[in-house]
Write a protein that binds this DNA or RNA. Structure first.
Lengths: 110, 110
DNA sequence: TTAGTTTATTGCAATATTACGATGAATAGT
DNA sequence: ACTATTCATCGTAATATTGCAATAAACTAA
């Protein structure tokens, strides 16, 4: 069907999945890394930096914006994007907690 | 096209995306959480626990296994799954490093 | 106003993902 | 051998994602 049955999972499980999903594409990873590297609002040069067509980049930015991970401010003809640090912190907390589940208790298995 | 252009990204970017992608579905989040909760090999009851049809669960397990996050050992008629702690550690390290990018340097932006 | 610049949106094609019924393969118990 | 159980695979339908050309929208500068 291609349609995720979100209703049978918890809110937290769906949120973790949503955050992870948006990172689950190398173009979006590259965009986020670039925004972090410059550590300022980036106006325009994302298309040449990443190497995908402008509509494609725009679409990836839209998804990142939709989750709130980046925010864009209009600056003349161009739009400047940067990380939303608050939302990034929320994501980091959720994913870290998921990744930090205890690995060690049981050693006599597998 | 529906086809990711992996060749224009770095190996690390693709790996981060691949790990994140597999977590990017609530069923797989639920499966992993359940395996952690029990902290032992789980034989069989994943289907009833998660609430999706058996072929669907089997497919999600296959993806988790393909990335090496879980391993399954045949135990009579059933197959027992558990977290591959070593691989989990690798993923945790990669994603944590990505999430820990410095947020603080520049405060006079956005 | 006109032309140039930059980003968003639309429309489309190709591929991927999600889900499940039906079936197959392997084993255990009788 | 027969049956039941469990998991994997196949086939299929529905939806989602990725990518880009074409176009629109919004602003700047002359």
């Amino acid at each position: 069907m291609g349609l995720t049955k979100t209703e049978i999972f918890t809110v937290t499980q769906n949120q973790i999945a949503a955050f992870a999903k948006v990172i689950g594409h190398p173009a979006r990873v590259a965009i986020l890394e670039y925004l972090f590297k410059l550590d300022r609002c980036v106006c325009g040069d994302l298309v040449t930096e990443i190497g995908l067509a402008q509509p494609t980049i725009s679409q990836h930015l839209k998804e990142l914006k939709h989750l709130g991970l980046i925010k864009g401010t209009i600056e003349g003809t161009s739009v400047c994007y940067c990380i939303d640090k608050k939302k990034w912190g929320v994501m980091k907390q959720m994913l870290t907690q998921f990744l930090d589940q205890n690995l060690s208790k049981n050693e006599n298995c597998c």
